[in-house]
């Protein structure tokens, strides 16, 4: 049942993330991407089974990992994903910061071309 619970949680995070991707505010879009990242990590973790709460770490004198422990493979995958996700997040935040700073808009509906939007002070509306 725990698997079912976390599968539902991952689905909910994913749904909220997708919903945020469809918002006009670019900050919401970034939050949506980050939520989807969480949903992905949780999905991998759930798909790797939640059978044991024991970490995949051997005791001092063991020479092999004795079952049952958690599966080390998804953990290695997720660890990588978390750190890469951090890099992505930093880049996104700075990118948003630049876009807003340069164009004076945070509305994705206004970003329909790759050219620089020259809006001047018009954004004060």
């Amino acid at each position: 049942m725990t698997g079912l619970l976390f599968a539902a949680l991952a689905g909910a995070l994913f749904a909220i993330g997708i919903y945020l991707l469809m918002r006009r505010s670019i900050l919401k879009l970034v939050i949506g991407l980050l939520l989807i990242g969480h949903a992905a990590n949780l999905s991998i973790f759930t798909a790797g089974r939640l059978d044991s709460p024991i970490p995949p770490i051997m005791t001092q004198d063991a020479i092999q990992l004795n079952a049952p422990t958690a599966d080390p493979l998804p953990q290695a995958l997720i660890l990588t994903a978390i750190v890469i996700g951090f890099g992505l997040q930093a880049f996104l935040i700075v990118l948003v910061r630049r876009i807003v700073g340069r164009n004076g808009v945070d509305d994705t509906d206004e970003m329909t071309s790759t050219d620089i939007v020259d809006r001047g002070q018009e954004d004060g509306k």
């Binding site: 909910a12 909220i16 919903y19």
Partner: peptide, 21 residues
Amino acid sequence: RDGVIAGLAGILLTVLLVIAT
């Protein structure tokens, strides 16, 4: 409309995960 579409996507992910598990 967006909520319904996003909700369907979430349900799809959940169902796929359940099948995989």
